[in-house]
Computed example of a mutant assay.
Amino acid sequence: MLDFGAVSLEWGTMLTQAIVFLVLLLAVRKFAMGPIVAVMEKRRQYVENEINSAERNRKEAEALLAEQRRVLDEARVESKSIIDRATKQASDEAAKIVAEAQSAAERMKAEASAELAREVAKAKAELQEQMTSLSVLLASKILEKELDEASQKAAIDKFLAQVGDRL
């Protein structure tokens, strides 16, 4: 036994306590530390797998985002192409309609001019016919009676007035 005044130590108790401590330490190490370390290792692997999975998901999301942007850009280019084609087609159609309208207007103008020319020719023919009949009528009246110069002049003026009224 060791005596230090207020504290005394017994070798047997100390040795027993040391052996119990070592047995307890071995038991804790075997029965408690193994499962705790295994649980901690499983937890570490789970966290590592989750981090790897999150990294893969992030990369997949970035790839999908890039693909969506590419598809969106293609759609924009295609829609611009469709709009450009539609605009060109509408412009071509408008030009075609204007050309057809101008052609129709020219045809109508030509037909109207031809109709007017026919009407003028017809009017001239009728006028000439009337002039001929009036001339014959005047000549027959002049021949029926012999007129003096003043009477002839009055008859001609009257004839011209009649012709003017009919025109």
Score class of each variant (00 low, 15 high):
residue 107 R to C: 00
residue 42 K to W: 03
residue 64 L to F: 04
residue 54 A to T: 02
residue 99 A to Y: 05
residue 101 A to S: 09
residue 49 N to F: 01
residue 111 E to D: 12
residue 42 K to Q: 11
residue 27 A to E: 04
residue 84 D to K: 08
residue 34 G to W: 02
residue 93 E to W: 00
residue 146 E to D: 14
residue 74 E to D: 08
residue 126 E to D: 15
residue 112 A to K: 12
residue 136 V to D: 09
residue 115 E to R: 15
residue 95 A to P: 00
residue 25 L to K: 06
residue 114 A to M: 10
residue 104 A to V: 07
residue 164 G to I: 05
residue 20 V to E: 11
residue 115 E to C: 03
residue 12 G to P: 08
residue 142 I to V: 12
residue 108 M to N: 12
residue 155 A to D: 05
residue 96 K to W: 07
residue 78 E to H: 05
residue 71 V to N: 02
residue 32 A to I: 15
residue 127 L to S: 15
residue 54 A to M: 03
residue 34 G to L: 10
residue 88 K to F: 01
residue 74 E to K: 07
residue 167 L to W: 04
residue 59 K to T: 04
residue 98 V to D: 06
residue 42 K to E: 13
residue 100 E to R: 04
residue 163 V to N: 00
residue 160 L to Q: 14
residue 162 Q to V: 07
residue 147 L to R: 06
residue 138 L to I: 14
residue 68 Q to F: 12
residue 52 N to K: 10
residue 14 M to C: 11
residue 101 A to M: 05
residue 60 E to I: 09
residue 3 D to K: 09
residue 6 A to M: 06
residue 26 L to W: 15
residue 3 D to Q: 07
residue 162 Q to D: 09
residue 82 I to K: 10
residue 63 A to K: 11
residue 91 S to I: 07
residue 99 A to M: 05
residue 143 L to D: 11
residue 92 D to H: 02
residue 108 M to V: 06
residue 146 E to C: 04
residue 21 F to G: 11
residue 7 V to T: 04
residue 18 A to V: 14
residue 80 K to P: 00
residue 100 E to P: 00
residue 117 A to K: 15
residue 115 E to I: 05
residue 65 L to I: 08
residue 159 F to E: 02
residue 53 S to A: 11
residue 137 L to W: 12
residue 77 V to F: 07
residue 101 A to C: 01
residue 30 K to A: 08
residue 65 L to V: 06
residue 126 E to T: 14
residue 21 F to A: 12
residue 47 V to Y: 01
residue 120 V to T: 13
residue 1 M to W: 06
residue 80 K to W: 08
residue 150 A to N: 13
residue 82 I to M: 04
residue 116 L to H: 13
residue 67 E to T: 03
residue 125 A to T: 08
residue 27 A to D: 04
residue 30 K to I: 10
residue 153 K to V: 08
residue 144 E to R: 12
residue 89 Q to A: 15
residue 70 R to C: 01
residue 17 Q to E: 15
residue 56 R to M: 04
residue 166 R to L: 07
residue 59 K to I: 07
residue 28 V to A: 09
residue 73 D to V: 02
residue 71 V to Q: 09
residue 56 R to D: 10
residue 102 Q to K: 10
residue 32 A to F: 14
residue 69 R to T: 03
residue 126 E to Q: 14
residue 21 F to K: 03
residue 86 A to Q: 04
residue 7 V to G: 00
residue 87 T to V: 11
residue 38 A to C: 02
residue 57 N to L: 13
residue 128 Q to L: 14
residue 17 Q to G: 14
residue 21 F to H: 09
residue 127 L to R: 14
residue 147 L to I: 04
residue 109 K to F: 13
residue 23 V to Y: 03
residue 40 M to W: 09
residue 24 L to Q: 13
residue 150 A to P: 02
residue 141 K to L: 15
residue 104 A to F: 02
residue 28 V to G: 03
residue 86 A to N: 05
residue 115 E to M: 10
residue 165 D to P: 00
residue 139 A to G: 15
residue 20 V to P: 00
residue 106 E to D: 08
residue 72 L to H: 02
residue 45 Q to W: 00
residue 98 V to T: 08
residue 73 D to S: 08
